[in-house]
Design a protein around this nucleic acid. Structure first.
Length: 268
DNA sequence: AAAACGAACAACCGCGGTCTA
DNA sequence: ATAGACCGCGGTTGTTCGTTT
């Protein structure tokens, strides 16, 4: 024998919830909790099925739900977690306090998916770009390291690397720059910004000698997806990464996301 | 001003895993 | 051991609202 038969669905209300229904549900759960969703609507006096009540509560009425627009940080987190977890919305929501899986799923389909696509297109464009100019600046105290568990014996440098599109025919307004900040812990923070045509100091001359293929710094770097990654003390051409290398990078980063630990670097 | 269109989001549906009588 | 209900999750749909034509 199984459990008692499920609630009779005939006569139950569907569709948007009224404020009165919301109040009844909130009041009942505050007083009695929600240990049994199936029994709840009858006990609370609602003409809804338990499933509908659970959804309304978990996605909308819970007091700990954060309403309002997603911040840039939240959006970035969702993109990164989705890269790692896929469409496991509840798992993603678990790492974003106050946000529901439904909300995250919605924003993904209506907003972030589009943004990510554009972002990936821009990344592909950069991968085919060439490195223009490298200048070294000393690290600022605030930028140097907050992860003392991860240390190596490499030299600390802060490097600003400007890149430009492959084709000099492109207008300067289409150029972008990437700043790599290398701290004592060999963590790289990659910051991307558009270079306006007025920023001519980035690209003083546009001719064939302007373009270079190699990153001419002491610490060549491995570049991931606009996120913190580790520097390698080997010469790696950051913009001609092989697909194998990208797979290894993804694996490495996924371990970092899942465990919070910095694993052994993959062999490139 | 109104119709058409698209974005945003709340809610429903169906499925698979778990639980229980 | 097992049938069938429960629960949670992800996919999808429907409605609302703002923008464009």
């Amino acid at each position: 024998m199984g459990r008692a038969p499920c609630c009779e669905k005939m006569g139950l209300k569907k569709g948007p919830w009224s404020p009165e229904e919301d109040n009844i549900l909130i009041s009942y759960i505050q007083n009695n909790g929600h240990s049994n969703w199936r029994a709840l609507p009858k006990l609370a006096g609602l003409l809804r099925c338990g499933k509908s009540c659970r959804l309304r509560w978990t996605n909308y009425l819970r007091p700990d739900i954060k309403r309002g627009n997603f911040t840039k940080e939240e959006e970035d987190t969702i993109i990164k977690l989705h890269e790692n977890l896929g469409n496991r919305w509840s798992a993603i929501a678990a790492r974003l306090p106050g946000r529901t899986d439904n909300e995250i799923k919605n924003i993904w389909h209506t907003n972030l998916k589009k943004k990510l696509k554009n972002y990936q297109l821009s990344q592909n464009s950069k991968r085919h770009s060439k490195i223009n100019h490298v200048s070294n600046k000393g690290p600022t105290p605030s930028e140097s390291s907050n992860n003392s568990d991860f240390s190596t014996n490499s030299t600390s440098t802060k490097q600003h690397i400007k890149i430009a599109p492959n084709s000099p025919q492109l207008s300067s307004s289409e150029m972008s720059s990437v700043t790599l900040v290398v701290d004592d812990n060999q963590m790289v923070i990659i910051k991307e910004e558009k270079i306006e045509s007025s920023s001519s100091e980035y690209f003083p001359k546009i001719d064939e000698s302007f373009w270079t293929d190699e990153l001419s710094t002491e610490n060549n770097m491995v570049v991931g997806h606009d996120q913190e990654i580790q520097v390698r003390e080997e010469n790696v051409d950051i913009f001609t990464t092989s697909s194998k290398m990208e797979e290894d990078m993804d694996f490495w980063y996924n371990v970092f996301i899942k465990t919070g630990d910095l694993p052994e670097l993959p062999e490139f």
